[in-house]
Design a protein around this nucleic acid. Sequence first.
DNA 1: ACCGGGATGTTCT
DNA 2: GAACATCCCGGTG
Length: 206
Amino acid sequence: MTRRGGSVGVGGRALSRRVLLDPPEVVAPQLLNAVLEVGGRGAPGRAGRIVEVEAYGAADDPASHAHRGPTPRNRSMFGPAGTLYVYRSYGIHWCANVVCGAPGTAAAVLVRAIEPLRGLEGMRADRPRARRDRDLADGPGKLCAALGIGGDDDGADLLDPDSRIRLVRDGVAPPPDPAASARIGISRAVDLPWRFCVPDHPGVSR
DNA sequence: ACCGGGATGTTCT
DNA sequence: GAACATCCCGGTG
């Protein structure tokens, strides 16, 4: 793996913070084809390409965790753009979000599926129920298990090259024609088309 | 294939 | 007490 300078991650270049300052429904499709990296500095790293996301707003979005203001759980949503927000879903699974928007707006993009790129053996070990490699990370809870993301990672700076978890570009641009549809698994604001996928990618959730 | 239910932390009514 | 940004399993067609 070539290192091209101090700000270069294992597999790519950190996203510019500027692209995360727009509203979540604008940022979300821009995160498609970006790469989420975990570890990789001495430890065996894991990485996957983002192929499905959902945008969540704040006061204006009744489906968002931030809709009713800050709580101990959603505290990191109120941090700067590029912060990782990890929460426990249904008391069992972990889910990962990229905080975005203007400072303090508490918007975020939920990462719903990744295409496994590196560290497949570790992913298989942590996802023993996955029968095929395409099933390793095709869901928001599954991808956290596959990458080894948990509550200790809540609040991490995804744009810091020294973070354990990083959000980078590896040269693959976002799709010019992202597929937009309604968000999954929610009961409020169900008609907002804030779910975005890489078109025709097999690794999207359910 | 579709459907029902269990697991269970945090938040809200 | 109930809902929830989920996943897995076992039953039935």
